[in-house]
Amino acid sequence: MEPTQGDESSTGTTVNDEALVDRLRLEATGQDTYTGFPARGFDQRVFGGHLLAQTLLAAAHTVDACRVANSLHAFFLRPGTPHAPIRYSVSPLRDGRSLSLRSITAEQDGRTLLRAHVSFSVTREDEDSLHAPPMPCVPVPSSLTPLHARTAANGHLPDGFNWRTRKDWWTSSRPLDVRYIDGTHLEDPALRCFWFRTAPTPRGDRNTQRAILSFASDRSLLPVIHHTRGELTGHGHRTVASVDHTMWFHSDVNAGDWLLYVQDSPYSTAGTGLARGLIYRADGVPAATVVQQGIVPGSRSRAQA
């Protein structure tokens, strides 16, 4: 469960030059058991995307190299602290001719943080899709203002972005370069979109690339629920918490390339909601579908109305 409020990078005092792929690295500590660490140097609780990425990597260590992750289903149970290692235990559930399934538990100091299932399949790289929704027509990322520059110019972040970034975005706790697309550029005002990229990493390991994508998929997803409710009327922190997170991987991606995150919310109640996202590659090919359930209280102004 990952509340989203504040960020160390708003002060500009915390810097970590360690590459994202190195922050996610695991050490084998036993039979189907691996140890990972939170991002060093930051005092906030462990980012949910960090847990997702290390969960996928732990599971990938236990399958044949020819098998690539095609889905991830995770429940966030407790928040993680930034100062202790995280133990990932993997249980093989199935190994068929074309599909493998793994169950993973993430624990820290005797507390269970996450339980997940990851499936792997034998797939060709860039396998052609038979049908897929077209990518929205939006401005290219080079024409959009980086998030840190928007903050400097406007004094606040775009609606729903509580976690700041900086010019040297790769040194922050959530090292993503984000280019938000204003609603005036969208044909459907119910959508919420932004381009993002991570720092490049050596290509070749498809599961590592998909782990990095799962890290990024947890970035600023639940605010689309507030957006759909019409409650994103200005800047300011909103406390939300992720309950579970599901991903289906559709095509290969490469860290360092631009990806478009198109988000909407099909359903919500007064206290919970469902956020949905489709991640596209810059060539218009869908890379992943994401669905997340969250605890999302309504705005105070609406509650008092």
Results as ranks from 00 to 15, higher is better:
residue 1 M to W: 04
residue 4 T to L: 13
residue 4 T to K: 10
residue 6 G to S: 12
residue 8 E to D: 15
residue 13 T to L: 15
residue 15 V to C: 08
residue 17 D to Y: 11
residue 21 V to Q: 10
residue 23 R to M: 10
residue 24 L to I: 06
residue 25 R to F: 02
residue 33 T to S: 11
residue 33 T to K: 08
residue 33 T to V: 14
residue 37 F to Y: 10
residue 38 P to M: 02
residue 41 G to W: 03
residue 48 G to N: 04
residue 53 A to Y: 02
residue 53 A to C: 06
residue 54 Q to E: 08
residue 58 A to F: 04
residue 58 A to E: 01
residue 67 R to S: 06
residue 67 R to K: 14
residue 71 S to C: 14
residue 79 P to D: 07
residue 82 P to I: 09
residue 82 P to A: 09
residue 85 P to N: 12
residue 89 S to G: 11
residue 90 V to W: 00
residue 92 P to A: 14
residue 94 R to Y: 14
residue 95 D to A: 14
residue 96 G to I: 04
residue 98 S to Q: 12
residue 101 L to V: 13
residue 102 R to H: 03
residue 102 R to D: 10
residue 104 I to G: 09
residue 104 I to A: 02
residue 107 E to H: 02
residue 109 D to T: 11
residue 121 S to A: 15
residue 122 V to L: 13
residue 125 E to V: 14
residue 126 D to Q: 09
residue 126 D to M: 05
residue 127 E to M: 11
residue 129 S to Y: 03
residue 134 P to I: 07
residue 137 C to L: 12
residue 147 L to S: 09
residue 155 G to A: 05
residue 155 G to T: 00
residue 158 P to E: 11
residue 159 D to M: 13
residue 161 F to R: 03
residue 163 W to E: 07
residue 163 W to M: 11
residue 165 T to I: 06
residue 169 W to I: 10
residue 174 R to Y: 06
residue 177 D to I: 13
residue 179 R to Y: 09
residue 181 I to W: 01
residue 183 G to A: 15
residue 190 A to S: 15
residue 191 L to S: 10
residue 194 F to I: 06
residue 202 P to E: 01
residue 203 R to S: 13
residue 204 G to D: 04
residue 204 G to C: 03
residue 205 D to N: 14
residue 205 D to S: 11
residue 209 Q to E: 03
residue 209 Q to P: 00
residue 212 I to S: 08
residue 214 S to N: 07
residue 216 A to V: 11
residue 221 L to V: 15
residue 230 G to S: 10
residue 231 E to V: 07
residue 232 L to M: 15
residue 236 G to F: 00
residue 239 T to A: 10
residue 239 T to P: 02
residue 242 S to V: 08
residue 243 V to F: 06
residue 243 V to E: 06
residue 250 H to N: 07
residue 260 L to C: 00
residue 265 S to W: 08
residue 265 S to E: 02
residue 278 L to K: 07
residue 279 I to T: 01
residue 287 A to E: 00
residue 288 A to F: 06
residue 291 V to G: 01
residue 293 Q to E: 14
residue 295 I to F: 14
residue 297 P to F: 02
residue 298 G to A: 12
residue 299 S to K: 01
residue 304 Q to P: 01
residue 305 A to C: 04
